[in-house]
């Protein structure tokens, strides 16, 4: 098996341009939610913006990662309003507005909206990330925000009001590297996202994978074919993520360590997964296809008569289904 040919196909079958119709639906829905937030909070909110993988140029077409950061003014929830009150208020609003058309869920730092399948079977997911400026009008100066941590996030405790970050700086940092180094960093990030997408509810955030890929390229000499580059990054994660000294600086606030978004157990799991993956691919090249599947929807292949179709990753049943 030609590993490089397969990985090239993984990347090309996951190109976002192949899912333009679905992508347009995401944009439309994102704009609807944005307008709803602006209508509700009027002058208490700055313009919400997308911070997901599309904004960073690292998107794949099986998971769009639309995160709608909603920057609130300092006194939007009263001068003594807490971040918890902000989070709860936004949740209550979104729940009331969308409860009949979507699952509305409290997540780590965001509120997840999963719209029920439309007539084409497309499910649109938008994560709304409420954030508040640190002091009145300060957001206009430097775009820093405080985020609320709803439940335990790696080593960051639930109820923490201390994730201060600059989401626009996060986006720009990754976008610049992914665009400038599109044959290396961008491809590897996309492959790691394809791998993550084969798992259900994997604790490692895409943002973590983006940053650790960039750190691997900054710390190791990574050259050669796409497989050789991927192999080196997988080895780097395997060998470094569990080290006590390992840190991942948040480009939005150098005081934040993204390594804290995973517990020691989750870091060990990530390292073990990298090890198992490398070992099994070394045992048999064909195993690469299990970890990095092509998007079968866009794969040109021979007739499948009398054969079941293959699935890419773990199939997840539709959340609600009616029978008669």
């Amino acid at each position: 098996m030609d590993k490089n040919k397969h990985l090239d196909s993984v990347i090309s079958t996951h190109q976002i341009t192949k899912e333009e119709t679905l992508f347009d639906k995401y944009v439309k829905k994102k704009n609807e939610v944005k307008e709803a937030l602006e209508d509700k909070y009027e002058s208490d909110i700055y313009s919400p913006f997308n911070s997901g993988s599309y904004a960073k140029n690292t998107a794949i077409n099986t998971k769009f990662d639309f995160d709608l950061v909603s920057p609130f003014k300092r006194n939007a929830f009263g001068c003594s309003g807490t971040l918890k009150e902000m989070y709860e208020d936004v949740y209550d609003f979104l729940y009331e507005k969308y409860k009949d058309v979507a699952e509305v869920k409290k997540q780590k730092v965001s509120i997840g909206l999963e719209f029920y399948a439309d007539s084409d079977g497309d499910v649109i997911k938008i994560d709304v990330v409420p954030g508040r400026e640190l002091s009145q009008d300060q957001y206009k100066e430097n775009e820093n925000l405080n985020l609320y941590v709803y439940y335990k996030y790696g080593n960051i405790d639930a109820g923490s009001e201390r994730i201060k970050t600059n989401v626009k700086a996060q986006i720009n940092n990754i976008k610049t590297r992914a665009t400038d180094e599109k044959d290396s960093i961008r491809k590897i990030i996309r492959l790691l996202k394809v791998w993550k997408n084969t798992k259900y509810n994997y604790p490692t955030k895409s943002f973590f994978l983006e940053l650790i890929t960039i750190k691997a390229f900054d710390n190791k000499t990574i050259t050669g074919s796409i497989w050789e580059k991927l192999e080196t990054v997988l080895e780097y994660i395997r060998d470094n993520v569990t080290k006590d000294s390992f840190t991942l600086k948040d480009p939005g606030n150098s005081s934040n360590d993204l390594a804290d978004t995973l517990t020691s157990y989750e870091k060990q799991q990530l390292s073990d997964d990298m090890k198992n993956m490398l070992d099994r691919i070394r045992d048999n090249d064909e195993n690469l296809k299990t970890y990095f599947p092509e998007n079968s929807k866009f794969k040109k292949e021979e007739s499948k008569t009398n054969q079941y179709g293959t699935n890419s990753g773990m199939p997840v049943p539709p959340p609600k289904l009616n029978f008669g």
Partner: peptide
Amino acid sequence: AINTIINNKNTSIA
């Protein structure tokens, strides 16, 4: 329901 399963991107069974 079968159509919903087929068209659901997360389900990924043919």
